[in-house]
Design a protein around this nucleic acid. Sequence first.
RNA 1: GGCGGGGUGGCAGAGUGGUUAUGCAGCGGCCUGCAAAGCCGUGUACGGCGGUUCGAUUCCGCCCUUCGCCUCCA
Length: 459
Amino acid sequence: MLKIHTSLTKCKQNFVPLTPNKVTLSVCGMTVYDYCHLGHARVMIVFDMVVRWFRVSGFDVTYVRNITDIDDKIIKRAQENNETIEILTARFIRAMDEDAASLGVLPPSYEPRATQYVEKMISMIQVLMDKDIAYAASNGDVYYAVSRFPGYGKLSGKVSADLYAGERVTVDPYKKDPLDFVLWKAVKSNEPCWTAPWGKGRPGWHIECSAMCEHYLGNHFDIHGGGQDLQFPHHENEIAQSEAAHDAPFVNYWMHNGFVRIDNEKMSKSLDNFFTVREVLACYQPEVVRFFILRAHYRSPLNYSDGHLEDARHSLDRLYTALKGSVEIAKKTLDWNDPHAKRFMEAMDDDFNTPEAIAVLFDLANETNKTGMRKGAILLKSLGGVLGLLQQDPQQYFQNKVVIGDSSFTTEHIEQLIQHRIAARETGNYTKADHIRKELLDAGITLEDSPQGTTWRRG
RNA sequence: GGCGGGGUGGCAGAGUGGUUAUGCAGCGGCCUGCAAAGCCGUGUACGGCGGUUCGAUUCCGCCCUUCGCCUCCA
């Protein structure tokens, strides 16, 4: 039985879907005004893993990962670049999809954009106004009156009385209560806007998720996820909006993944300590990045450094080494009664414990190396596939690694040197043979002699 | 200030009231012309102080420390 940790109760609970064998899942995607950084990559990879596991477990998953394509930062960036927000956001949506694809992240069922659902947001805001939960201020903004929603704070554990709003930011004078948040921003000059019954403007951030969730998943769905930093206020506000508008519960399980850190600090745009996915992929294979992220539990903080990625690469090498020579693995259905598979399943069912699941992979690799049995390699590849790993041809994995230093060693050149070395060895000229090997090693290429011949790999 | 999550062997990172996590790195051995890979062997790790217990890294309390949220943020 699958257990999921939900932020609502801060403990693991048995997963019981609203509809048998179906999962409705929404994850807050990104605001598209720049390239994805590793923090975004973590969200995408983690929930991709979650979706894959649900599917393997026999669930029919509807996965919505929405895109924020209208907000202050987007408007600002478009103005700086002297381009329209449509052109700006289209570019970064494309970049995001490319990054996701290279990291082995399967496309979500739906990837809606906020600007396509403004009508829906307007009608939702209208419902809240009709219920006297939202109010229009004299400046044209529309706010949500937090005091009108009794459940406010149930997700984040923040009690209204403790939220001394105004302690750290200047209070918006148009709010009736400092805790109130904006649903609709009145239009300012030169900004894109939509027409609403109470005036022109654009939606606030939180309402878009409530609207898109309602559209794709209904008033009440199974799981909502995102980065830890969205728990408050974003998700708390979503609950307030949706539950007040629908008079129904919103989400049963809230999943929040931990941050990626640099030097023990949260990776973020404001701290300017982030690495984009593209920067990292210039030096490491995408699968190494995916492996690096999955080898930590999704709720734990994950420190990023070159050293850690290097470490992950060596670990992944070990797994692929065990797969060598087993390229022609037939597509077989997984035997979940196998002790290793069973252990893997138990780990995954325990709140998606991928570190433990990956430990099973290493045990399997060891057994495969020891016995030389193809059965182990087949299972290893199959279980790896459940996590979106180990699906490359091993030779390709070892030979197509990202070349950082000397790229003058082409495959032909390498093969040629290997032939020279073989000739030298046959005549007992080990000095020459070792010299060639050293030359290749200095270029980052390792040779491996075996009774079957000489093979090479990068790294 | 309020609230919340952490502190595990050289590094990364799971887990558990008593018995090997796992990986990387290191050391010794086997294999090899020598290597590499692999295999075998190898490390008195659980922040501090009390408490509960036959027994705690694991439960409880306090302390230290660290990170995060409370403002945009995945």
